[in-house]
Nucleic acid binder design. Structure first.
Lengths: 341, 341
DNA sequence: GTTCGTTCTGGTAGCGTTACCAGGATAGTA
DNA sequence: TACTATCCTGGTAACGCTACCAGAACGAAC
């Protein structure tokens, strides 16, 4: 039923090989022949079968992009960056969503392996991904990690300077005199969480503030989790005067909790976080954020991946670290308020 | 280099066919043989080649999901719904982003055809997609449209009751006494835009308000476009007292413009729109929205698609219409203010 | 005229899997 | 014993494409 290369060949009065050549750029094909073939293709509505092409040619021109949460604008930006580069290079991207679950990540990796993608860009679930990621390397599939680092995994890495950026962000709070600064910290098996916590402690230290473990609460990376973590913080006998949220969604949850407790931001509790939201300029407290160049994460990671695939660069493991941009709005309580967005 | 079914067969001391049977559920295979094969699979780290499977078996167990803007939370929700259903059914989803561009949609459709996906869920660019969508039907690929209808396209459809929902939304404004209600209308080649505009006019009529073409400005569906459209409205000699935005992102742009003009919402200008944002409860004006059940769009569309693929139901074209939920917050200026989100 | 190179074209084989058919073994029935 | 039914297994031939090799045609160079 479906039209094959043979049907086209028959109609054009040539061999399948010639049709194949025309499809693939038409090197060494008579102009006239080529036109006849193209006409036959149009007439029959022939669409080359990618499966057969991939199977035969060993090249699928497909990449995988595996992310923990496509609903998070930060990751959506990465998608956009990656897509642009891939499209430019004639590659198709298959997007997978792991929801931060290790098993779903494993399933996605397995599926992408089965699809014979030529490379994978992944923001891993966390350190626990180490086993399955190393396995990928074992299969010879080029791997580029974005955002989150995982020890002992062969592959390039594009990430933010979480330690330094967190330090800068918290310093903003210490500079305005805050003494009890809490952190909603994410999960310790995620490198960004650990690093941001390290930066947080550095900032405290620099300001000669004691580290209080009670002020650091773990969380997931979604709104709901940020909400609950904030509630726990607000129930403390000695309430924090400022909160550092590990990412944007957690901060949104924090805002909700603060509202419910009738606490004003930043007057009662200041709030800062990582990752901007496009709509952040509209959030009531005008969130002060550390905006990571997410789109660049996507473009750079994909560029690096394509280089590996192309065979350029055989260095063992490259690592790109990008600094974030500090966008100071009202929520941190400093008076250096900026205009919208 | 890569491990094939033959390698597994050799190690397990059976034929490739037996290995194939084990992979596919192991009907009619001796328990003992099956175990031997599975052990060989594990030992060699064998991953079946999906390309070969698809080519040989004519079933790729893959669906395409083509959307105009994955960065829009509305569509992201659709993704989540679709993914859940697909995963449950053992299908992989390939996500494509068209950016609302017809050519990119055409390219995606072509690519998905080449990948031999078994079906496509698509929120089309607009009426202009008609040609390329009909073509898909011609190729025998089941199609389900979501959100946006396109005339004369064979395939199921899941959409909102844009006319009725828009009427309800605008009625909220007329009920509070607004006389000059503007609409940022999207593009007329998109069904949702047209329908919402129809609902808008119905509501005006019901309130005995004259329709003023100057108050209806076209737009894209993104923040930037909403911003510019709002500016145009605010430059009018007789400024509107309320704005109905065709979707969430446009509304966000509107908020920005209103802010810049130092106009308060809802006191100076009321604002309502379609589609919620998770963070909407945090937006300063507490946007009043018509929240469409986006996730259901995704699940229902995918369910219908799988039914078609499975061969159940040969009705010509089914159409599912879902009503949205009106979430009244402060931005519309009625005093029936609700609690956060 | 022979040799070589270049340009175009076609045949064959194989990519890794499964559909389909066939056959051997075992057990149950007459 | 013979016949059928059932369970398990293997061989062969595709699926649609491209790598690879080979050959034909033509002109250029010796």
């Amino acid at each position: 039923m479906p039209v094959t290369i043979r049907d086209v060949a028959r109609l054009a009065g040539v061999s399948p090989m010639t049709v194949s050549r025309v499809i693939n750029g038409g090197q060494n094909v008579l102009q006239e022949t080529s036109q006849r073939v193209q006409q036959a293709i149009a007439e029959l509505g022939y669409v080359p079968n990618s499966l057969a092409r991939g199977l035969s040619g060993q090249r699928t021109r497909t990449l995988a992009l595996i992310l923990p949460d496509v609903a998070n604008p930060f990751f959506t930006r990465i998608v956009q960056g990656a897509e642009a580069v891939a499209r430019e290079a004639g590659y198709q991207i298959i997007l997978c969503n792991t929801d931060g679950q290790l098993e779903r990540e494993a399933a996605s990796l397995q599926a992408m392996l089965a699809y014979r993608v030529e490379g994978i860009v992944i923001a891993p679930v966390g350190d626990t991904s180490q086993g399955q990621l190393s396995q990928m390397a074992g299969y010879g599939v080029p791997l580029v990690l974005v955002d989150r680092a995982v020890a002992a995994v062969e592959g390039d890495l594009v990430q933010g300077d979480s330690v330094g950026d967190a330090r800068r962000l918290v310093q903003l709070l210490t500079d305005s005199g805050h003494q009890r600064i809490a952190m909603i910290a994410g999960q310790s098996y995620v490198s960004t969480s650990r690093d941001r916590q390290a930066g947080y402690r550095q900032a405290l230290e620099a300001a000669n503030l004691a580290f209080d473990p009670a002020l650091v609460v773990p969380s997931e990376f979604d709104i709901e989790s940020g909400y609950r973590a904030t509630q726990r913080l607000l129930w403390l006998k000695e309430r924090p005067t400022a909160i550092f949220a590990v990412n944007n969604l957690v901060a949104v949850g924090a805002v909700r909790a603060l509202r419910e407790h009738r606490l004003a931001t930043p007057d009662d509790v200041a709030l800062v976080c990582f990752d901007d939201i496009d709509y952040a300029s509209l959030l009531c407290p005008f969130l002060t954020v550390m905006a990571q160049p997410a789109e660049s994460y996507g473009t750079i990671a994909t560029d690096m991946l394509l280089e590996r695939i192309g065979g350029q660069s055989n260095e063992p493991s490259r690592r790109v670290v990008l600094s974030a941009e500090l966008i100071v709005r009202e929520s941190c309580g400093t008076r250096r308020t900026q205009a919208y967005g």
